[in-house]
Design a protein around this nucleic acid. Structure first.
Lengths: 208, 208
DNA sequence: TGTACATCAGTGAACGCGCGTTCACTGATGTAC
DNA sequence: TGTACATCAGTGAACGCGCGTTCACTGATGTAC
């Protein structure tokens, strides 16, 4: 009477864990090289040095691979977000507003480090069966920021706070993504400008 | 000795022009329904009530269809931009900054009117062979805005102006796109907030 | 330390399917007289 | 107004290919004694 369908079992051996991670690394590379509408399970397996069926030991189907890839990237983004909140959350809205540029910078660093990161985000965005992953992640980021801000804004409705931060999150990610295709702008200048724009949006919450 | 490869000849009859437009309409619908990695030329032709080879009378290949679809949407966006510039450009930076909300609103209206508009934009974004279309369009929008602003900002370097506006353009489109997947925010509130953020960014140009 | 055995990781070969595209063709439309 | 003819719009059938996925299997690793 244990578990109904029970997804995939987690790998037991070290070799397997490496293989599983390699599949994601390779999928990221391939997304960047050929895009979401050309990538295939056979391609991913081949590049990872595996035969096609091996992939199915780790993922239920093609979409499960891409979803796992997206979730891994977003978990890394969440980790730097948590670190930032731990450092600046206690200092209140003013402290967070002042250091919003740092958050953009560390997030950009995560994206830069992951192979094909920007193509992962775009693929999730452009695939109906996967949009929910990105959406959930952005909402989760917004939730965490709202949790960090709310204690310092006793008079403000949670809903209004959330909506403002949601927009800020979207803008932060959009600016980061833009840097990967637009080479006519300076990365530093853009991140500075975005920080400058988001600061009043946050401080405004405290004022209003 | 006329033209080398010469792309596709433009259709001569009315019937043909309607067919060509219908192919794009249908492609937009299908992008929204099945996404970039499931859409196919056979699918597009079938939904348009045509046999597969008919599509090739109008477009060289699958990517040409999607590119044409993207360009048609962007031409419509450019049209409302031009109207806005014609109305508010002569009034100077202050007038434009004040009415930036109108621009966001009419642009959002264009997106809303086109079937699958948001999926078109995402598909362009996620397909290596098509990214250049979106990039060119955003740059063109930025150019036009820079042309409108430059006469009122004699002291400012064109490059700095352009980079600022480029960011504003990206943010405007990102906010518009967000509205289609995030139902926890109010469209009006978001567009208002974005307008409020972009206003100082523009006025700042005049001041600095 | 050696070995028998259980479990885990990965393979070779194959499947049915729909893809993008081309060919030689037919039916529809427009034009000249 | 009628008709012969040129051009344009769309079709039926087929192609080779790589897709996602499954099957029954083999080789690698870990464990108990």
């Amino acid at each position: 009477m244990n578990g109904a369908v029970a997804a995939k079992r987690r790998p037991q051996q070290d070799r397997a864990r490496q293989t599983q991670a390699r599949l994601l690394d390779v999928a990221g590379e391939l997304l960047a090289e050929v895009g979401i509408e050309r990538i295939s399970t056979n391609m991913i397996a081949a590049r990872a040095g595996l035969s096609p069926p091996a992939l199915y030991r780790y993922y239920d189907d093609k979409y499960a691979v891409l979803e796992a890839l997206g979730r891994r990237l977003m978990a890394r983004q969440n980790a730097v977000l948590d670190a930032w909140i731990a450092r600046h959350g206690p200092g209140g809205i003013a402290d967070m507003a002042e250091h919003v540029g740092d958050l953009l910078a560390v997030n950009a660093a995560v994206t830069r480090a992951e192979p094909g990161a920007v193509w992962i985000l775009r693929a999730l965005h452009a695939t109906p069966r996967l949009v929910h992953v990105r959406l959930e992640s952005h909402r989760q980021v917004t939730d965490r920021l709202a949790d960090a801000c709310a204690p310092h804004l006793p008079g403000l409705s949670r809903d209004r706070l959330w909506q403002r931060l949601r927009l800020a999150v979207e803008i932060g990610f959009a600016a980061d993504e833009m840097l990967y295709e637009e080479d006519r702008v300076s990365a530093m200048a853009v991140l500075d400008d975005v920080a400058q724009m988001l600061r009043p949006l946050m401080l405004d919450l405290a004022a209003g």
